[in-house]
Design a protein around this nucleic acid. Sequence first.
DNA 1: ATAAAATGTAAAGGCACATTGACTCCGTGC
DNA 2: GCACGGAGTCAATGTGCCTTTACATTTTAT
Lengths: 63, 63
Amino acid sequence: MKNRLKVLRAERDWNQSDLAAQLGISRQSVNAIETGKYDPSLPLAFRIADLFGLRIEDIFRRD
Amino acid sequence: MKNRLKVLRAERDWNQSDLAAQLGISRQSVNAIETGKYDPSLPLAFRIADLFGLRIEDIFRRD
DNA sequence: ATAAAATGTAAAGGCACATTGACTCCGTGC
DNA sequence: GCACGGAGTCAATGTGCCTTTACATTTTAT
């Protein structure tokens, strides 16, 4: 899966720590997801979508 | 998370084995997801949505 | 140039997802 | 009665998500 987290975060001028705090996860997890080390769980994907006011499909795509 | 898998499956007259085969996972995994034992991974959620021609948000909801 | 902030990476641990094989329970029909 | 298909569940195993602590690298600003 690919994702647009880095772009969405940049648009809002947030750093990885800011995003992590809002999602209630660690900064390393945000980084791992952004750099494609792994995909978020479904509940976390929902929280991410909610935070950005987008659909999951608008943030995450298959490779 | 709650999901509408059982209903969507019934609408198509598929049993858990049929669905499992189409998703490339085990029947026990389909059952576990339907009965709420756990949530699917994000990639699997995408495969499920694709199979039913729906959005992830139309199949899965927060509790 | 150099200090600080942001990002990337790594190891180790815990819990959740997903697997197989085997077993039970329920409803239908022979 | 008994067999059958469908569904639910268990134990054991392996992998993946997410954590913490720690350190290295890159970017930004002074």
